[in-house]
Design a protein around this nucleic acid. Sequence first.
DNA 1: ACTTTTATTGCAACACTGTTGCATTTGCAA
DNA 2: TTGCAAATGCAACAGTGTTGCAATAAAAGT
Lengths: 125, 125
Amino acid sequence: MRNTQATQKIYDIIKDSEIALSHSEVQNMLPEGFCDRATIYRVLERLAQKGSIHKIVNVDGVINYAACEYAANTPSATHVHFNCERCQTVTCLEEIKPNFTLPKNYKIHQSNFVLSGICPNCSAN
Amino acid sequence: MRNTQATQKIYDIIKDSEIALSHSEVQNMLPEGFCDRATIYRVLERLAQKGSIHKIVNVDGVINYAACEYAANTPSATHVHFNCERCQTVTCLEEIKPNFTLPKNYKIHQSNFVLSGICPNCSAN
DNA sequence: ACTTTTATTGCAACACTGTTGCATTTGCAA
DNA sequence: TTGCAAATGCAACAGTGTTGCAATAAAAGT
Ligand SMILES: [Mn+2]
Ligand SMILES: [Mn+2]
Ligand SMILES: [Zn+2]
Ligand SMILES: [Zn+2]
């Protein structure tokens, strides 16, 4: 993977963000006309492939991206995500790893756990 | 909610299905030209609102629908869903209810738990 | 430095999912 | 049967994401 301007900047945006970001949010955080829409999609896909970020499919079907806490690992360490319906943010709850056991022989390649409601911040205000 | 042809037929299709169905799958199972695309979307939304079916957002962001096991209840009884990458099916695993505890004061309105991989059937073949 | 290779990009067109406004139809209750 | 509101058809739209292809730019080789 080449170290291009787009890759750098987009990864920085996601890494520096407290919350998970959708494609359109990333686009809005980039300087006007910095790069093409398609490039953003491709960069995000590449970063996810590489394992430096991970995808979260929100309850509305829109994909969000967050940097992976532990650099090159735990791709499938199934943690929960929270979508706040008031402040419209998606956050990784890295500590919350639900406990469950699948029957028979299911092979898990990926997972997507999302809770939606009101976050503590918004509950307080 | 009125008992229309579209409502009846679409609900029957979902109720009688072993697997969760997407909008396009429902459409393909209806007689050619039975009703408009928009109507299907509206019916599905209505049935979900009413609580006779529930939504599952798949890992690709596409919404699937499944009849609710226990008629008019357990809207949020958070069970897991499985998406098989080989046979392209989404199934409710009603028995599998992950255990987790959220910190602070999160208010949960809805949840979406999906695992993706290879189902037992496809593993065997 | 210059050349070469090829990963990455821009562009533009596309597919797909889902939504909406509005006129018309239809279920259902009075 | 009549009247009303819910539901529908249609057609246009918005948003997300993908793709083919020619042009560009990393980065490795010379
Ligand atoms: Mn996460
Ligand atoms: Mn289910
Ligand atoms: Zn919030
Ligand atoms: Zn399968």
